[in-house]
Design a protein around this nucleic acid. Structure first.
Length: 819
RNA sequence: GCCGAAGUGGCGGAACUGGCAGACGCGCACGACUCAAAAUCGUGUACCAUUGGUAUGUGGGUUCAAUUCCCACCUUCGGCACCA
């Protein structure tokens, strides 16, 4: 037999070659095409930390595969990539290694862009954005000004969370966990009183709870819903004896008659006014001590209640009862009004407080299935709803009607009204750092707070900066940068030296991709109208209550300002899990369990790495890395290579059965792979292709190679592989003589007729246990199936002499004989 | 404490709508090729025992039939937490 020369699979050579060719031919450049349906596929952009890690690959590869699949479905697909380039690590590098953040960042980007290119993803690099470039952050500043002009940005002096390691304030969303630590570095935060800029996210609290127009994971919706923390109740105003109004929020207006005291937070503005002379010393000491306590200590729910009496009394507007006003730190200034009515009989916290300080407990709610409650003897509060008692004209109101009836009455009498409270806070966006977008504001001694005129944007970061070991922002220390003349009156004025939270940059980057070249508006309207909204957004779940809330807020605010359109920026969201180290721990340099994608690409090729990342775990869950597991994907790739390229000993001589079964498996696989790609179930996409490969190998042994059915199988197989392993698919496609490029082909069509099973295995059970299997024609009638089943030897002997109670036939699946 | 997700072989995982549990892959074992090894190819691989039985975190329930539905509980992970 003559030796045919079979090309050797060389991943490195093939991948470089095609990446270059695709770039030269611009085949993945996304341009407006009104004749095609558009598809905007977006994946969260990386921070240029220096190296692409396996987690980036894990997140991006399946997103790319899905985008490629959509492209083959005939969509005009945009899949852009960029860099979230402002942020603290650049500054830390500056302090530690004396390298300018800009150089550090842009060097890293150059390296990471090359790494990203090695993935062979279909990024349209013309659309790249880098949030630290002036062309980009000019518009970040511009958005700030629009928010300011629309009263959605404001400045406030108040206690804020400060990370002592990062040397900056943080938004509420960036403070995590029981010990209230910094989301970025893990250091517990402390409180500082500072003048800071905020965005009015709370204005959109209600609208942010509406997910009806989005296909987002239930999990993210729950996280956001809990974060926004809506509670419905009533607002009621009590008056002090001196006539000072004390507004309280309560979710239980039905318990108003049981209020036996009031509590105000130590930071409440009326504390000193309400404190009577004989209580001054005690109150002052308490307030001072509350101030010194950290939030962690204060907010521990199981902590013993503390508090002091102010000496003053308030009048309960529903029954004119005179009740004492206490000051206690279990009431938080940051929620509601910082004052509560205390109903110890029906609230756990109020009860604990009342018992400790011997305050009255009055029962006003009697749940139906409980013994008669007595305020003097009860040992715990009863928060359950029930019939109102001791409540004047409301007495006797059933539990399920109490809320509405009382609130209506309050509104009628003008004492209170229905209110909704949210846990969500406004977004604190000031950061005391250099490497961020400057807040474009000026402080003038005459005019006060003045926005930088839009024509003067961007406010550029100064290049010549120095870092002090104290970590203080170089913008503050810069000799000239902050000095400016007031745009209103021309007086000497000062710039704001804080920069913006980098989440501000990432709140609108999906718009930056639309037209990075554009310089008269943040985006080209034509591009916006064609591409927006984002159709599929992929990324990590860790952003559920940060980036994903901010970007929704940003869109809604932008819409109300007439800049953006539609209800939501991203219609569909899918989250990937994370890849752990082989030791089942989080990957980190210190643990030494980091997997380097560059090395894997060098060893196996990008296609193998892509395939393995899609195969080895359920995408949304993630799993620990397994370095021998990747061998399986490598084998698969090499088998595909030899399957289609190595000639067979026997060619084009297969019998009809072989060919029919091969085609059946082919089209069944196509059906399954299509379904799984649609559903982001990438692991079964690969396993389906592996199964089909095994089937094709058998068919090849049986002489199928070279037949027209074989050629169909190769053609479809390669097109199915193309989104997953773009390089090898293109290479084999071209070696088999198909026209360039496989990536411009349409997704194959299922031949339903070929996919049909003509024979099926019918399972025969007795009392639910498998006793036999028979092969029957797929279109067999239930009656015939029953007859054949009962006639088999196994079943016949088992059924002998016994009474058949019932026979259940599941068409095409099984027969269960109940004895 | 409250809310959410997940528990299937040695491992990652599969099972579309209640219908053969363990697809596919890793690992392991054996065999072929080889002087030998690697690679490759082939065969086998949940557990226990002899026909058969037992298995999807645990215990119940519904059903002819449950990884799938219901109830209770356990474990792990994530979020929230003195939020009135």
């Amino acid at each position: 037999m003559s030796e045919t020369i079979v090309p050797v699979y060389n991943s490195g050579k093939i991948e470089k070659k095609w990446q270059q060719k695709w770039a030269d031919d611009k085949i993945f450049e996304a341009n407006i095409d009104p004749n095609k349906p558009k598809h905007y596929a977006l994946t969260m952009l990386p921070y240029p930390s220096g190296n692409l890690h396996i987690g980036h690959w894990y997140a991006i590869t399946p997103s790319d595969a899905h985008a490629r699949y959509m492209r083959m479905r005939g969509y005009n697909v945009m899949f852009p990539m960029g860099f979230d380039a402002f942020g603290l690590p650049a500054e830390n590098a500056a302090i530690k290694h004396n390298i300018h953040p800009s150089k550090w960042t842009f060097d890293n980007i150059d390296h990471m862009r090359d790494q990203l290119k090695s993935m062979g993803a279909m990024f349209d690099w013309r659309r790249e954005i880098i949030s630290a470039k002036p062309e980009y952050y000019r518009w970040t500043e511009w958005f700030f000004l629009q928010l300011y002009k629309n009263n959605l940005a404001y400045r406030k002096f108040s206690p804020v969370d400060w990370c002592p390691t990062c040397n900056t304030t943080l938004a509420r969303e960036q403070v995590w966990g029981d010990d209230r630590h910094c989301e970025r570095c893990g250091t517990p935060v402390i409180k500082k009183d500072l003048n800071q800029w905020y965005f009015r996210t709370t204005k959109y609290a209600e609208e942010l709870l509406d997910f009806s127009e989005m296909d987002w994971p239930e999990r993210v919706q729950t996280l956001q819903t809990n974060w926004i923390g809506k509670s419905e109740g009533a607002s009621v105003t009590f008056l002090s004896e001196d006539g000072d109004p004390l507004e309280v929020f309560t979710t239980r207006p039905d318990t108003l008659w049981g209020a036996t005291f009031m509590v105000i937070a130590p930071e409440h503005p009326l504390v000193s006014k309400l404190t009577t002379p004989d209580h001054i010393a005690e109150v002052a000491a308490y307030v001072e001590q509350a101030k010194r306590q950290s939030d962690i200590q204060r907010e521990a729910a199981d902590r013993e209640k503390t508090g002091v009496f102010s000496g003053s009394y308030a009048i309960n507007p529903v029954n004119q009862a005179k009740i004492p006003i206490w000051i206690a730190d279990y009431v938080l200034m940051g929620y509601g009004t910082g004052a509560i009515m205390a109903v110890p009989a029906h609230d756990e916290r109020d009860f604990a407080f009342a018992r400790k300080f011997n305050l009255k407990v009055i029962v006003v709610v009697q749940p139906e299935n409980m013994e008669l409650l007595d305020g003097d003897t009860m040992t715990q509060s009863v928060p359950a709803h029930g019939t109102l008692v001791n409540s004047d004209l409301m007495t006797g109101t059933p539990g399920d009607k109490a809320f509405d009836r009382v609130v209506s009455w309050l509104e009628e009498k003008g004492i209170g009204h229905r209110t909704v409270n949210y846990r969500l806070r406004d977004w604190l966006i000031s950061r005391q750092r250099y490497w961020g977008a400057p807040i474009p504001m000026i402080y003038c001694p005459n005019c006060g707070v003045v926005p930088v005129p839009e024509k003067d944007l961007p406010v550029l970061l100064p290049e010549d900066v120095e870092w002090k070991p104290t970590g203080e922002s170089p913008l503050k220390l810069h000799p000239t940068w902050k000095k400016v003349t007031c745009p209103c009156c021309g007086a000497d004025a000062e710039r704001e030296t804080d920069t913006m939270d980098t989440f501000m940059c990432s709140s609108w980057y999906h718009l930056g991709y639309l037209s990075p070249y554009f310089n008269t508006w943040p985006f080209d309207q034509k591009e916006y109208d064609y591409w927006m909204p984002v159709d599929i957004y992929t990324g990590g779940i860790e952003h559920a209550t940060m980036h994903l809330i901010y970007t929704r807020f940003f869109h809604k605010a932008g819409r109300d300002m007439g800049i953006m359109k539609g209800k939501e920026p991203m219609l569909m969201l899918r989250n990937q899990g994370s890849v752990l180290g082989e030791d089942n721990e989080k990957m980190s340099k210190s643990r030494g369990n980091v997997v380097d994608p560059d090395k894997l690409v060098a060893q196996y090729g990008a296609d193998t790495v892509r395939a393995y990342l899609m195969f080895f775990a359920r995408w949304e869950l993630g799993a620990p890395w397994n370095s021998s597991g990747i061998e399986g994907s490598s084998r698969w790739i090499r088998r595909v290579w030899s399957l289609f390229l190595e000639p067979a000993d026997r060619q084009n001589c297969a019998n009809e059965d072989t060919l029919r079964i091969m085609r059946r498996k082919l089209h069944q696989t196509l059906k399954a792979v299509t379904r799984d790609l649609e559903n982001f179930q990438f692991n079964t996409v690969i396993s389906g292709l592996m199964e089909l490969l095994n089937e094709l190998m058998k068919a090849k042994q049986n002489g199928a190679f070279g037949s027209k059915e074989w050629n169909e199988a190769a053609n479809i197989y390669l097109r199915m592989m193309a989104p997953v392993t773009p390089h090898i698919s293109e290479e084999i496609w071209s070696l088999l003589g198909y026209p360039y490029s496989i990536h411009n082909q349409l997704w194959p069509e299922v031949d339903e007729e070929a996919a049909k099973e003509e024979e099926i295995t019918l399972v025969i059970q007795i009392n639910g246990k498998v006793r036999d299997r028979i092969t029957v024609p797929a279109d067999i009638s239930d009656e015939d199936a029953k007859t054949i089943a009962l006639a088999t030897e196994q079943i016949h002997s088992a059924v002998q002499n016994k009474e058949i109670k019932k026979i259940i036939v599941v068409p095409k699946k099984l027969i269960n004989i109940v004895l």
